[in-house]
Amino acid sequence: MSALERHNVKTSGSGARSLVFAHGFGCDQSMWRHVAPHFEDRFTVVTFDHIGAGGSDSKAYDPAKYATLNGYAADVVEIAEELDIQDGIFVGHSVSAMIGALSNVARPDIFSTLILVGPSPRYVDDADYEGGFSADDIDDLLASLEENPLAWSASMAPMIVGNPDQPEHGEELAQSICKLDPDIATGFARATFTSDNRDDLPNVTARTLILQCRNDIIASERVGAYVRDKIPGSQLVMLNASGHCPNLTAPEEVIAAIRDFV
């Protein structure tokens, strides 16, 4: 199976440069549905699902490969290779910000521009670094995901939209919104929230924009500033939006910031 099939890759729009949107932990490519279509006039727009999310092929999940974010970065490189992307733009939300940074370090030729939405190179506090969470908090998260797969899957299950008008068809249309395979969720959470990619930041060569929200408990302003200081020549734009998901709560702001930069 090709990487394009495995990752449920969708391309639209036209343009010499490709603009790849990557979702973070907890959701799938529908995360970008209010933003991505606005770039179809100037770019080839690409969205995809990480393995375990949305319409991806869960059978491709390999715990060893995906134990760190490098496995996810390798997937991004593979998708880009199959699409023949060079000099592209990568927009990564949440953990995908670091996944984009890693893929840039591994293959600087693929993406010459990175846009990092709510990035964090490390979620757990360290000596003089404030990631926002203690190791116990993350253990607690992983234990709750592991212990409680039923409740997790109940809230993450695809919505089943029946067709009561035509019961004779007996077909149910499964609509995927933020679908995450419960068996893979814990592994993805572990790779995400135990990651430490601080040392990779200085090796990023792409032109980089950081989009920072207010009151983001997942990736604080302090962490955003840290990323800006470590990635050579990067810029940080403070959004008015609050929380961790401006691509959903304030898409216009995100669209405008990306447009200004590219």
């Binding site: 549905r33 949440s94 908090d137 995901l145 809230s155 993450m156 997942i218 998901c245 959903l248």
Partner: peptide, 28 residues
């Protein structure tokens, strides 16, 4: 709890935003 904040921000907020409702999520 901190763990539930992560689940809430990364999973519940997007679901609420995209589908307008969430049923039976398990949090502390």
């Amino acid at each position: 709890s901190k763990a539930s904040r992560i689940v809430f921000e990364t999973s519940i907020v997007p679901l609420l935003s995209l589908s307008g409702q969430v049923d039976g999520a398990s949090l502390d």
